[in-house]
Design a protein around this nucleic acid. Structure first.
Lengths: 118, 118
DNA sequence: GCAACACTCAACCAAATGGTTGACTCTCTC
DNA sequence: GAGAGAGTCAACCATTTGGTTGAGTGTTGC
């Protein structure tokens, strides 16, 4: 299950590594879109766009509902949350420096106000 | 510059899409590591591991300092922060639902405790 | 100064990626 | 029911990726 989580991150980060797919996600942030609508902004064949959409689908970043002859896609945010959480682990490395700075400032402030017991 | 940011996200997400490279980052979260130390846990040649390290370096996720014959790597968190921030845009999509759920629960609780003014 | 060490580099290979085109399957509309 | 529309599928192609091995480059230590 750690294994499967690893694979999930593999496919999610791989899906996010392509600018076309990231743009598609941003389009979907505006609401449901058909395959045709998602493909339209790009200078590539519909088949190529369809492959990108499939990659997003396999990463479970989107879900597809077939309505008649059109396929409507919508954002499925859970894997994005996982990726966000994974990155959050490293937050201390870019925020941590601020924390250390803060500690130093507190210590400095503490030394200045020494003796004045609350 | 939007262009360059896009490319940066490309390389960062691509670097993160590989489990070997993610493990290397986690090792580096524990502090500085040499190329040999980073490569050691993996059942692959040093040359292969070196390529992974170069991928991390090109994504600016790590920095390398040459000390004599050893190359010491350390985490460079800024691009992780960018990726985290990019994902953060979608937070409303997974947090929003929880908000709605929360509202429903509150409404439910409110209905149950109707009349019992605090 | 020479052998071992810590790596990188280059050439090579198989598999995956990202694109194309053409044929095919449904579905809708007239 | 025939044609147009929406989209997938399969075959193909060039490029990239992720690995290998073997040789090469500095550095260190005896």
């Amino acid at each position: 299950m750690v294994e499967s989580q690893t694979r999930q991150l593999d496919t999610v980060f791989h899906a996010l590594a392509d600018p076309t797919r990231r743009q598609m996600l941003q389009a979907l942030a505006g609401g449901e879109r058909t395959v045709g609508q998602l493909a339209e902004p790009f200078a590539m064949s519909l088949a190529a766009a369809s492959k990108h959409i499939k990659a997003l689908e396999q990463a479970r970043l989107i879900r597809r509902e077939v309505r008649g002859r059109t396929h409507v896609c919508r954002l499925e945010p859970a894997p994005l949350a996982s990726a966000h959480e994974w990155l959050g682990f490293y937050e201390r490395f870019w925020a941590g420096r601020l924390d250390i700075l803060e500690q130093l400032l507190r210590a400095e402030a503490g030394r200045k106000s020494e003796g004045e017991k609350k």
